[in-house]
Design a protein around this nucleic acid. Structure first.
Length: 562
RNA sequence: CGGAGUGUAGCUCAGUCUGGUAGAGCACCGUCUUCGGGAGGCGGGGGUCGAAGGUUCAAGUCCUUUCACUCCGACCA
């Protein structure tokens, strides 16, 4: 590309509404422009990157046996009513009506549409397994779009779906997709980690996320350096170490006016927070439900929302509801004499002589103990793991890193095929619900994730595999020097002949501007064409901002092709 | 949804408290000089000051409403 003829509106200053590195740099490098909250236009070189990722994704999915299709972004409500998700999805799914007053949704995902497609198009088990994918625009009306492309409302996603007659077939494809994702991220050149994950609203089965490691990642990953164990903190199992000690203290009710938080309690009684017990109150299926945790632990809502007596969707009880049901405020609740059902976290269930709310405003119990003072009948894992505690596979202490979730693959079972009646007769003529898998990969998010991982203060440092071009030719004094112009175009043409993507900065700009933009755009190879060295037939070459070295044009081609 | 902040030129921002002709730097156009890390001179173009309503002789500035964007939170026992 000739930069003089390409829309690359680089920005000298950081736009005021961009915060994270990828957002700032993609804007400054002229890759994207924001239209509205969570909505972005792709400019030529940003689109180059997006397309390069798509090529890699297509190649690896083809290798893994998936077929590309394209499905509508506007979807009739009927399908979503059929799967039961029309009401479950909430305002995240954008809805609209057509001129005939029919309800539609803007696709947040495509399970329903692909399931409908399969039940109509697949007529024999001999056509199975079937593994389809598309690269398409999705729309999710996020609670809070942020971080530019990392959490946009409209975004480009590769979503794949596979259908199988039996588990064995499904597992083969699931593993093939897992491997394909690993290959894709390796080819792009990103540092990533595949982890056990919580499937959220997508399903109930196993799932794995693929995270690009970056400090700015929204997710925390717990992993064991001593083993292959890695899980999203949302999912990582928290184990309780030790046993319940014998009670040493007697139960006493102490006045605790104005004490509302665990910090207050620990401060007042001069004990560590881990010696206290806190009780959260949430809405349940038939009454309010208590969730009992050690004072220093954090509730994991994903885990808690899976408990049978906890209402869906997960919601904390309001102070009014708590007062109506328990006759005290939320700061004074405890498991002793609690008159609603409650679950006790594993770690909370082995604390002895603890301090907890007395279910009476202004009072706490000290010296409380399980069995004697309160019964923990439902002991479950409902907290977040903490860095340094033992991993669930007993391999040693956990460490945390942050990641950007770029891929998520799910074992859906018959969650969609059952309600949508996606069945096929097997070889014996028995009608079977198909086993389904779902495989998402955020293409536009990958662009941002790559920038998060690959940049410095001056600009982007694109991984070679997805760089908008391989070579950036900085032509110094382009418009006045015939020699520079000739040499720059000679190199440019040789690259084109060799099918090497190349940018030539042929703009009538001062050198400083061109250097700064080259840094911002971050192509792997750079050549400076200037009269200074042209007399000796030399160009200045650098790779990924390394020191300049003097080389001939032929040597540049060799570097590019090696 | 709750809280906070910001909306003035393409970009970054002054000006708002204390009402009185719309500003700067960069960018853009012309021109001269300069030419290896975001140059300098001279001249120029560009604004319904987010929108609507109100107060006032007079509103970017005060009041009311509203919209947009950003940030924090949606864990509190």
């Amino acid at each position: 590309m000739l930069l003089s003829q390409t829309l690359v509106p680089t920005l000298r200053e950081t736009p005021s509404d961009a915060d994270v590195a990828s957002h700032v740099l993609l804007l400054r490098a002229g890759c994207i422009r924001q239209l509205a909250s969570g909505l972005y236009s792709w400019l030529p070189i940003g689109l180059c990157v997006l397309r390069k990722i798509e090529v890699i994704v297509r190649e690896e999915l083809a290798r893994a046996g998936a077929q590309e299709i394209l499905m509508p972004v506007v979807q009739p409500a009927e399908l979503w009513l059929e799967s039961g998700r029309w009401d479950v999805m909430g305002p995240e799914m954008m809805r609209m009506r057509d001129r005939n007053d029919r309800d539609y949704a803007l696709a947040p995902t495509h399970e329903e549409v692909v399931s409908d497609l399969i039940r109509k198009a697949i007529v024999s088990y001999k056509q199975l397994p079937c593994n389809l994918y598309q690269i398409n625009t999705k729309f999710r009306d996020e609670i809070r779009p942020r971080f530019g492309l990392l959490r946009a409302r409209e975004f480009v996603m590769k979503d794949g779906y596979s259908f199988h007659l039996d588990d064995a077939s499904f597992e083969l494809t699931y593993q093939a997709m897992f491997d394909a994702y690993s290959r894709i991220l390796n080819r792009i050149g990103l540092d990533f980690r595949a982890v056990d994950a919580d499937p959220g609203t997508m399903g109930d089965g196993e799932s794995h996320e693929f995270h690009v490691l970056a400090e700015s990642g929204e997710d925390a990953i717990a992993f064991s350096p001593a083993s292959s164990y890695a899980a999203n903190v949302e999912k990582a199992e928290a184990v309780a170490t030790g046993d319940l000690d014998k009670p040493a203290l007697t139960l006493e009710k102490k006045p605790t006016p104005d004490v509302r938080t665990i910090d207050d309690v620990a401060q007042l009684f001069q004990v560590a927070a881990k010696q206290t017990i806190k009780t959260l109150v949430v809405k349940g299926t038939s009454s309010l439900v208590g969730l009992v945790l050690r004072g220093d632990h954090q509730l994991n809502e994903k885990k808690a929302s899976r408990l049978p007596e906890v209402a869906q969707p997960f919601e904390f009880a309001s102070e009014d509801e708590i007062r109506a049901a328990l006759a005290c405020g939320p700061g004074s609740i405890g498991p002793v004499n609690l008159h609603v059902p409650f679950y006790v976290d594993r770690s909370a269930a082995i604390v002895s002589d603890f301090i907890c709310g007395a279910n009476e405003d202004g009072f706490h119990f000290t010296g409380a103990n399980w069995k004697r003072d309160a019964t923990a009948t439902r002991v479950v894992d409902i907290r977040n793991v903490v860095e340094g505690e033992p991993a669930a596979d007993a391999s040693g202490p956990l460490k945390f890193i942050r990641g950007i979730e770029v891929g998520h693959i799910f074992k859906l079972g018959t969650k969609y095929t059952a309600p949508m009646n996606v069945t096929i007769q097997d070889a014996k003529g028995v009608s079977r619900e198909l086993i389904m898998g779902c495989y998402g990969l955020g293409i536009s998010r990958l662009v941002a994730a790559a920038v998060e991982q690959c940049h410095d203060d001056e600009g982007i440092i694109w991984p070679e595999a997805i760089a908008p071009a391989m070579l950036h030719i900085v032509a110094i004094n382009y418009s006045r020097s015939d020699a520079v112009r000739a040499a720059a175009h000679d190199l440019y043409d040789r690259c084109l002949d060799a099918h090497i993507d190349v940018f030539l900065d042929d703009r009538d700009e001062r050198p400083g501007v061109k250097f700064a933009d080259a840094d911002l755009l971050g192509l792997p190879h750079r050549v400076i064409v200037g009269e200074r060295n042209l007399a000796e037939g030399r160009l200045e070459y650098s790779y990924r901002r390394s020191e300049l070295e003097l080389v001939t044009p032929t040597q540049v081609l060799e570097r590019l092709q090696s």
